[in-house]
Simulated assay, not measured.
Amino acid sequence: MSRSRTKRNDVDSAAVLAALGNKYSAEILCAADTPKSAQALSEDVEIPIATCYRRIEELVDAGLLTCEGRRLSDNGRRTNIYRRTLDEIEVDFSDETPDFSQKRRTEAKNRLQEQLSN
């Protein structure tokens, strides 16, 4: 299992810590192991859709979640589909500013996860 050590310049530590510190963010990231709409994430985590959209926006801004495209919903509307960008993150507070180690998701893992969930 390899970890890619990020540099402080690669990650906005304040945005990552703020996003992870918000209620439901970790649950949304866990639920977003496969591509899901905001509605599906809201249902999985059992939170109001407005709260889910706010958390999604924060997680996307922090680089922890990505919009993978759009799909038609059951109602025929185009909706954004989200997936987390990493599987693990470690925060080191021993310096003046936090330093992050993370295990990013590979495209191969994304494809395998999709095959297993179908």
Rank of each mutant, 00 (worst) to 15 (best):
A19V: 04
Y24L: 09
R78M: 13
N80Q: 11
I56D: 00
A31T: 06
L20T: 09
F93M: 12
A50L: 10
R71F: 02
I56E: 00
D95T: 11
L29W: 02
R55G: 01
L29F: 06
R70F: 13
G76H: 06
A31L: 03
N80Y: 08
D74Y: 06
E57L: 10
L65F: 04
V16C: 07
A32C: 09
Y82E: 05
D44F: 04
E90S: 13
F100G: 03
A62G: 06
S101V: 11
S42K: 02
F100L: 07
T85M: 10
R55P: 02
V60T: 12
D87T: 10
T34I: 15
A40I: 03
C67M: 11
T79V: 15
N80A: 15
L65S: 01
A26Q: 11
V16R: 07
V60F: 03
G69R: 08
D95L: 10
I81Y: 07
V91A: 13
S73Y: 08
E90P: 00
L72E: 12
A50S: 14
I47K: 05
P98K: 03
N75H: 10
K103C: 07
N75L: 12
D61F: 01
E27W: 01
P35S: 08
Q39Y: 09
Y53S: 09
A31F: 03
E57S: 15
V16K: 04
E46Q: 13
L59M: 03
L17C: 12
L72A: 11
I49T: 09
R84C: 08
E68K: 13
L86G: 03
F100K: 04
F93D: 05
E57V: 07
Y24V: 07
S94C: 04
A26K: 12
I28L: 14
L72I: 07
Y53C: 07
R84Y: 03
D95I: 00
